[in-house]
């Protein structure tokens, strides 16, 4: 019955998503802990609600998808902070390009080495290869290489949330202080969800992270087929 209600109600999925996210924001404000990440809290609460009430993901997504509908326009708008920080990009062009290339290569090398250690099958290995790039590009790469696209999407989102949560910890452990370096690291290794974190850190971080999503995505498109042949 609840399942049917979800399917027919125009706003059920959207409202539960927004409320769960608000709860996440509230917890984060109250406890100041990185683990109280609003996206993570929202996802856990919603999955728990859907499971408890016996509601299908598809019924939930019938209305929740309208939130995702805005993702393309929002991505387009990342051009604005990037434009406002264009001088910063020009001043650091070599560092930015080398950093993104190094990030894309080291990410895939890491997946290669660990997949070898765990003796994963080729299909599983190529499913994980595009885990650091933005969902739309990653889905394309996974499909192209014969991976399992739904798992790739799940891994891409988990990678993004991990980057978002752990960024501050990694930056202080590695003594990374340059705003440009922080932005490039977040955008290259945890795409748009990492960029949300970069936007919180500052304008320079956000702009560089936006740029890194696009450039790292393109590097990965070119390099992933080569890496696919290694295992």
């Amino acid at each position: 019955m609840i399942d049917e209600f979800f399917r027919d109600a125009f706003f059920a999925g959207a409202v539960i998503s927004l409320l769960a996210y608000e709860l996440g924001l509230l917890l984060k404000k109250r406890f100041h802990l990185a683990i109280f990440n609003p996206i993570l809290i929202a996802v856990i609460c919603i999955i728990a609600c859907l499971r408890l009430s016996g509601t299908d993901y598809d019924s939930y997504n019938a209305s929740a998808k309208y939130i995702s509908y805005l993702l393309t326009p929002a991505t387009v708008c990342l051009a604005l902070p990037l434009y406002e920080q264009l001088k910063l990009l020009k001043d650091n062009l070599a560092a930015v390009v080398c950093g993104i290339a190094a990030g894309a290569v080291s990410g895939m090398t890491g997946v290669l080495i660990l997949s070898g250690l765990f003796k994963l099958e080729h299909t599983e290995y190529v499913t994980l290869l595009p885990k650091s790039v933005t969902t739309a590009i990653g889905m394309g790469i996974s499909e192209e290489l014969g991976g399992i696209v739904t798992i790739s999407v799940a891994m891409i989102i988990i990678t993004g949330i991990l980057g978002n949560i752990l960024a501050d910890l990694i930056f202080s452990a590695c003594k990374i202080k340059e705003p440009v370096a922080k932005g490039i690291a977040l955008g290259t290794c945890s795409h748009a969800i990492g960029t949300a974190k970069a936007m919180e850190l500052g304008e320079a971080e956000g702009a560089m992270s936006s740029l890194a999503i696009a450039v790292a995505g393109l590097f990965t498109v070119v390099l992933a087929p080569i890496f696919s042949g290694f295992m």
Binding site: G13, S17, L18, A20, Y21, P38, I39, A42, V43, I46, I47, L50, R51, Y57, Y60, N61, A64, K65, I67, S68, L70, L71, A74, T135, T150, V153, A154, I157, I158, G160, I161, A192, I193, T195, A196
Partner: peptide
């Protein structure tokens, strides 16, 4: 509001 737009896809993990 971009972060919240990832929630529906992330719930797909279930």
């Amino acid at each position: 509001i971009m972060p919240v737009m990832f929630v529906p896809a992330a719930v797909g993990i279930m």
